[in-house]
């Protein structure tokens, strides 16, 4: 990392309309900055050189947690620390509070936002180093080679690029069936979480559907899973401050007799998008929540995995996390 950023024009709009106009004006040369925890690294590394930085932190409409008749609305610029400490989130959607509290370090969570966390870019070493890889617009993946440093990379869904989603909260959004409200000068659109994240087969240079003129406004979490049995666990090399090697988020409804009525279970850091484990869900629905069910489900968690040279360890890790999620929710 170098110590001086290339110059850019900094804009700090106070309302959405002004921000959208600026985004339209600068197009792909604009950079939307939320908490800035990742942006400044990119600039200092000189791997991203925007002409204009649009700092969204002054837009009050993008902040706050609101309870609605349909569930919960969280402004995209709400900080992770605020979400982790919010009593409504903790009471109804403890899964999200836990995941938000596991992101990075307390200092970063105080500034980092939920919108920035779910929309963050890949952490692949080669991409971050400014190499001309597929994700950077080139025609080579350096991590997917036999000698490549691919310990942190994907088990599923590789399409030339082998990067994974590094987000701690993205799997939670898919598990809770969240909706993402996106605005541009053309209007507003609402996407389910599993459509918000995109893999390299769809667009190799983007992790989300956000286009240059788009702003993620709000994340809506429906009340469907409020108060369900949740499980979140993140395994990282350093527990104090690191990206996940694998994380798991599950929301489960269990009948009085202990039978699993409904479940959504999602793993992060194993694919470019949060990976919903449909086979696991199908196996455990209608079965009692116990060790046997968890063991059976775990055995199918990594079905279809295509490990790279140095990330085979993610398969048993993923299986064990799924087992614990089913058994210990």
């Amino acid at each position: 990392m170098k110590d001086m950023m290339p110059k850019f024009d900094l804009f700090q709009p106070a309302d959405i309309e002004t921000a959208l106009k600026l985004l339209d004006k600068y197009g792909a040369k604009a950079w939307k900055m939320a908490g800035g925890q990742d942006s400044l690294d990119w600039f200092k590394d000189r791997a991203k050189r925007p002409d204009a930085v649009i700092d969204l932190s002054g837009i009050e409409a993008l902040k706050g947690i609101r309870e609605t008749a349909a569930g919960l609305e969280i402004g995209a610029m709400t900080t992770l620390a605020e979400i982790a400490a919010n009593p409504i989130v903790k009471e109804k959607f403890g899964l999200l509070a836990t995941a938000a509290g596991r992101v990075a370090s307390p200092q970063i969570r105080t500034v980092g936002t939920i919108g920035g966390n779910v929309s963050q870019d890949a952490r692949c070493w080669y991409y971050r180093s400014g190499l001309d890889c597929y994700r950077a617009g080139g025609n080579t993946c350096y991590a997917g080679t036999p000698q490549g440093m691919n310990r942190e990379h994907c088990l599923f869904g590789a399409s030339r690029c082998v990067a994974v989603t590094p987000s701690d909260t993205a799997p939670v959004m898919v598990a809770l069936e969240a909706e993402f409200v996106i605005r541009s000068s053309k209007g507003e659109r609402v996407l389910p979480a599993d459509k918000y994240f995109i893999g390299p087969a769809v667009n190799i240079t983007h992790m989300t559907v956000l286009e240059p003129g788009d702003i993620l406004m709000t994340i809506r979490i429906p009340s469907k899973w409020a108060g369900a049995k949740f499980y979140y666990e993140k395994v990282a090399d350093r527990n104090t401050w690191d990206f996940p090697l694998v994380n798991v988020a599950s929301a489960m409804k269990v009948k009085a007799d202990g039978v699993i009525e409904d479940i959504r279970i999602v793993c992060g850091a194993v694919e470019c998008v949060p990976r919903r484990l449909n086979a696991v869900e199908d196996i455990v629905k209608g079965s009692p929540q116990n060790e046997d069910t968890a063991t059976l489900a775990a055995s199918s968690a990594a079905r279809g995995a295509a490990p790279l040279n140095f990330n085979h360890f993610k398969i048993p890790l993923m299986e064990n996390l799924v087992k614990r999620a089913i058994r210990d929710s």
Binding site: N139, T140, C141, G144, T145, A158, S159, R160, A306
Partner: peptide, 24 residues
Amino acid sequence: AKIDSPLWTRDPYLISAEAWGLVY
């Protein structure tokens, strides 16, 4: 040679980086 498929495994070293540039 740059992609995996059910029929073959990718080999990005098939030709040199310069030759890849020309191919693209």
